[in-house]
Design a protein around this nucleic acid. Structure first.
Lengths: 136, 136
DNA sequence: ATACAACTTAGAGTAAACTCTAAGTCAAAG
DNA sequence: CTTTGACTTAGAGTTTACTCTAAGTTGTAT
């Protein structure tokens, strides 16, 4: 006795709709069915779902994840391709983190900008020439 | 004489379609028109576009960016709201970076996993019980 | 004068990732 | 027995963010 789609959905904090969509897209070929035709998730399927969720939430599109799952099902002949999937994706994630850190600098500047403006009572403080019209 | 939409598009590395879409969605109310009705971007519009691009590429949806632009146009009465936009967004970006770093751990594990499997010639190496059946 | 390139608009089309509906099946509870 | 709740499917609908098309205008070059 494994887990129903509803149990897996709440454990993984996704909707059952999403799991069925992933299955329809070919991301879950490893999930068994019981004699009534219902999906019957095994303990080991959670590791699969964790990998799929990792790839998806780090920005990999469903079609690329399917390619990886397909290769996984083919067995040892695709080990090199699967390694490359993760090596390339690692680069993509590093690039994304780098980009987000760059944006953080601008966001921090804007926070400073608006705090200064609120202190001064007006955004106009920022259009002032430096060292001119300074008032105490 | 400012910049045409095509010039701005290539400078900002987005398509002119995208800029027109942003304008249609109300993200560019500050862009002037010349006497023929064409958009006439000023130097100062690039700073606006930089902020919009920063927010979009760090994950803010177009509708939220529009809210921020609308508040900006209202003037000093909305300084507090605008500060909160950036403060909340900063938290969201930090959360995203944290999440990506967490995913990186799994990606690195998978790279190690596939390198070991390739060395061994088979993924089966990873299903072996530790310290059992070791052969030299 | 006329061709060409780049602009304009409204609105249609696309892609991704869900999200839901309708109609039906099935096992357990009352 | 029959109701209830959770599952099944195919397929339609939604949202976001573009992306493009069609028809038309404008400014410059030959």
């Amino acid at each position: 006795m494994g887990y129903t789609i509803g149990e897996v959905a709440s454990k993984m904090r996704v909707s059952a709709y999403t799991l069925r969509y992933y299955d329809k897209e070919g991301l879950l070929p490893f999930v068994d069915r019981n004699k009534s035709g219902n999906r019957d998730f095994k303990e080991s399927d959670f590791e699969w779902l964790a990998v799929i969720t990792c790839l998806k939430n780090s920005g990999m599109p469903v079609k690329k994840i399917k390619q990886f799952v397909d290769w996984s099902m083919e067995g040892d002949t695709t080990l090199q391709q699967r390694l490359e999937v993760f090596e390339k994706h690692k680069k993509a994630v590093i690039d994304k983190i780098t980009e987000l850190n760059k944006h953080m600098e601008k966001i921090d500047y804007k926070i400073w900008y608006y705090q200064k403006a609120i202190d001064a009572g007006s955004e106009a403080i920022h259009s002032q020439q430096p060292c001119i019209l300074a008032e105490d």
